[in-house]
């Protein structure tokens, strides 16, 4: 999507700006709220935030691209966060990633063509005793095997159809 054809409903940001009015250090919080609203951070939203918060667009873009939580592109209906923490690594997170890539045909940071899944690897979900772990939306799935991981995404895909 290019800058010129991106048209987000910016009125949704009004309550966010109101909530953080007077707080000069709320840029990250505002971006988080904006991402909750839009699912990602569209360019026009970033510019609107820059204007409203008195930050330069360059700075807003700098912050939005520094933190892994922020997304500048829409994500799939289901966001798979695959843990690649130490414990998960030791217990075979690489093979889980491979299985997911095989099953979905997309890799880290990508979204399936049907828009059902996005995969993102994360440093640690903090559920190390259940490693290897992945989180899909709000749910955590632990003690994965490649087969189990494939099974889980298959079920979600069926349910999403």
């Amino acid at each position: 999507m290019c800058d010129c054809c991106e048209k987000s409903d910016l009125s949704k940001l009004t309550p966010v700006f109101e909530a953080f009015a007077g707080d000069d250090h709320a840029l990250i919080s505002i971006l988080q709220k904006a991402q909750e609203i839009y699912g990602y951070l569209p360019t026009d939203v970033l510019y609107a935030i820059a204007e409203k918060t008195g930050n330069s667009p360059a700075k807003v873009m700098g912050v939005a691209t520094f933190y892994t939580q922020f997304r500048l592109k829409p994500v799939g209906k289901n966001l798979i966060l695959l843990c690649k923490g130490t414990a998960c690594h030791v217990n075979g997170a690489d093979s889980i990633e491979k299985a997911l890539v095989e099953e979905l045909g997309v890799g880290d940071g990508e979204t399936t063509d049907d828009g059902i899944f996005s995969i993102k690897t994360v440093a640690c979900l903090g559920c190390c005793s259940l490693s290897p772990v992945m989180m899909i939306n709000e749910d955590t799935y632990g003690s994965l095997t490649p087969a189990k991981a494939k099974e889980i995404v298959r079920k979600i895909r069926e349910a999403s159809k």
């Binding site: 800058d3 510019y47 330069s56 667009p57 360059a58 700075k59 873009m61 520094f66």
Partner: peptide, 21 residues
């Protein structure tokens, strides 16, 4: 002016001017 900024993180960081149009 504040027209330039760091974009991205780590080894992939670049400096870019960021403009709407």
């Amino acid at each position: 002016q504040g027209l330039l900024g760091l974009v991205g993180r780590g080894f992939k960081t670049v400096i870019k001017p960021e403009f709407k149009d």
